[in-house]
Design a protein around this nucleic acid. Sequence first.
DNA 1: ACCGTCACG
DNA 2: ACGTACGTGACGGTT
Length: 881
Amino acid sequence: MSKLILIDGNSIANRAFYALPLLTNSSGLHTNAVYGFTTMLLKLIEEQQPTHFMVAFDAGKVTFRHKDYKEYKGGRAKTPPELSEQFPLLKELLQAFGITQFELEGYEADDIIGTLTRQADEQGINVLVVTGDKDMLQLASPQVTIALTRKGISEVELYDPAAIEEKYGLKPLQIIDLKGLMGDSSDNIPGIPGVGEKTALKLLHQYGSVEEVLAHADELKGKMQEKVKTHAEDARMSKELATIFREVPMELTLDEMAYSGSEGQALASMFQKLEFKSLLDKMDFTAEEAGEEPAEELECQWVDTSAAAAFADKLKTVSAIYVEVIGDNPHYAEVVGISFYDGETAYYAPLDVILSEEGAPIRAWLSDPSKKVASYDVHRADVALSWQGIELRGCSFDVQLAGYLLDPTEASHTLAAIASKFSVGGLKEDEAVYGKGAKFKLPDSETLNNHLGRKAEVIARVTPVLEKALEDSEMAKLFHELELPLSAVLAGMEKQGILVHSEELRTLGVELNERIQDLMKTIYDLAGGEFNINSPKQLGEVLFDKLQLPVIKKTKTGYSTDAEVLEKLASRHEIVQHLLNYRQLAKLQSTYIEGLLKEVNEQTGKIHTYYKQTIAATGRLSSQYPNLQNIPIRLEEGRKIRKVFVPSEPGWSILAADYSQIELRVLAHISQDEKLMEAFHHNMDIHTKTAMDVFGVAEEDVDSNMRRSAKAVNFGIVYGISDYGLSQNLDITRAEAARFIEQYFSVFQGVRRYMEEIVMKARKDGFVTTLLQRRRYLPEINASNYNLRSFAERTAMNTPIQGTAADIIKLAMVQIADRLKREKLASRMLLQVHDELVFEVPDNELETMKQLVPEMMEKAINLDVPLRADVSCGRNWYEAK
DNA sequence: ACCGTCACG
DNA sequence: ACGTACGTGACGGTT
């Protein structure tokens, strides 16, 4: 039984384009419409099992319809370039799929499909027409079903004549009459003004066709009669325009549309070009098809206790290892085992074997810093193994870290994804082997052995490729001398942890709880009833429906109730101030009291955070489980939380040192702005200095308001300024904000030049870099969409600044860690908070450290302006301010 | 899994 | 006319 699928190519491409966010591959090619189209094709092939397949496209700007009505499709917005550039890709993709495509000058896809369905009707072939265009329903017949895309792209709704009858009460051909009466604004087909779908259906149910409606116009009432009579000609013409032409002079035989499956290789290479990673995984292409260096058979040996001694002899030739760690938080994760690759054979030793007596030589080897092996996510392995009493040393390459540096914005840096991106195949994604979420399960030992063995082998194969790529992009030094050493420093800090006074934290929680209870009671009283204050939905109803407060701002899902909105409502109702207080305290309670208590390690009494080194697009670190980079400080109430972070040895102190204005100093250096450099050379208060220059007043005439504005401008400059953003921040008009910015740039001309040049550089190269050559790609820098482009421009301005500051503190960390070790100081580095480092220090080292730390931070790198770091210490983190 | 909110630099 | 300041993570609620 033949089954023919006919796709309205333009319609589906359009739907996909507007339904999906703009995706780009790394070369800046837009791919969202092609992606949507692809998922639809895959779904159709799987579900419909077509024997024949064809995609029709519109061809030529002028069709025969324009002869009768030259405004046809007039007023329609021009196809955006982000979509038009995808049509060649789409056609290439269809070829890879092995799907016939057809177009004919002067005809639209509808007409081609209309003609083919007529022929199919005659020959009794089953047809499925896929389109987003309701007009096509006119083609439905016992043989022909129409699949209309619903919201989005992946869902379709099937219409056969019965379904059309049920939905509209019309025969398929009457769809033409429907459109004749109601018109179609998107095609600029007029219809009868004022007649929408409802009226049109009513008329058709009564009279059956446009012609009959016109013939019985006299029977219609008042206004309607008048409209129908005046626009009778429009209705006739509209019907004609809406009629799909089913006699296109074309010869396309069924044989030519035969579909016999897709060719894996062509499809895989197309998916690779488009960077459809999820599809590449899902399709399970063989390595050959995927164009990857074909993975050869790999012998994977299982190392048990009886084989451990023999295996130990092979260790000296091992070039890559992989430590399988299951669980998000490496401090509490399960180490499953370690796999090894010696250039020939893979070996896998489960953790219990490594921990056994027989595993001693393996443990010794793992701890040997003089060996050189490649691995993946050494940082994580280091932390997880340390909890097993195993030291991991001597990893001289990290695939994850390299993959991150080569493109920090990549969504995931899994080993399989990085390998595949660099044309090394043979490894399945963990998800495909282990399952995910609730379905996660370690497989049988043979599968596990092979999977983990393969990981070690893939690390060995991809390492030289990544080394080369790092060289080519001038990041080899950044990798080997900064990021890789840093990963060991981080692991050390995390293992060390920071002691938390849990009892004190609990006490704070009890006090807080009483105040929260009181606030809740007051709020319920004022609201006239109980509700869940934590639910923005319920709170919105109370404020804006029940209490009738004015709506200031809306979110996607309803009323906004954020602090900014509440501040504006504070004067209008007593409840609002209580809500603000409640929010503040509830945040402290849930995130910083209960949240932190949950993360205190039972054995150590400490909090061991985990720094992610491969997440932030700018090169910053981020902190998890818990996040110790966002402990409150701005409000005294929350700042008290810092009192519970204490030294882990009696009599020691907490020492904190932070860079002063590091981002603006970095800006001064990279922009070489004379005024800004001068300000820092004189170690001036930068916001006051900015106020003096921008407002043209003497230092003593800078009032607090002027300084506040100048500070906001400085922040804005670092973020990639826009008048809108500044106006929001300072609560002034856009015009005023624009004047501030102009004033700023007229003083700091070097900064203006930098901002212009960095955006131009981003356009030219497609990426921006930090001082240490860290890179960030900005594919949207040339987008025609204003928002996307502006975002990329601001990112181009901000990333070199934020990223260079991140480079610098990372340098300081590596150098300081080195120094502490070399000089055998007992002091320990515990935390990093972007521009701040926190240590615990014994008394006898306090003076040394108070000098050493800021000095090393200031000298971490030599810029054309001085760097400054302030230091302070106390019995806890709160006091070190 | 996603959203709104809010903590930090 | 558009609508956003840059970079993160965690929580509770909702879907």
